[in-house]
């Protein structure tokens, strides 16, 4: 378990095409909203593309739909990288 916790990566640092399984959503006033929008632990997500100039990123949530979120919002979501 210890080793696994160390290998978590924030959604915000992922490049297009990379993905993983949501592991933790950091404690923040936006956290309930992120979870409601489908970023709950166990959900598979994949970065589709990012806006130019460090803008928001588009993330595919479990094949269901595309969510767009800012970098500082994506920072709250920690992923377990899945075979990358």
């Amino acid at each position: 378990m210890e080793g696994k916790a160390l290998s978590l990566r924030a959604l915000s640092v992922l490049r297009p095409g990379e993905g993983g399984i949501v592991s933790v959503v950091a404690s923040h006033h936006l956290a309930p909203k992120l979870v409601e929008m489908g970023l709950f632990p166990g959900k598979e997500v994949k970065v589709l593309f990012r806006a130019p100039f460090g803008g928001p990123m588009a993330v595919e949530i479990g094949g269901g739909y595309t969510l767009s979120l800012r970098e500082d919002e994506a920072m709250l979501v920690l992923l377990d990288p899945e075979n990358f």
């Binding site: 909203k33 929008m37 928001p56 595309t66 969510l67 767009s68 800012r70 919002e73």
Partner: peptide
């Protein structure tokens, strides 16, 4: 409140 973006990109 703090502004946020967090929106769906519809098909």
């Amino acid at each position: 409140e703090q502004g946020f973006l967090l929106m769906e990109l519809p098909a």
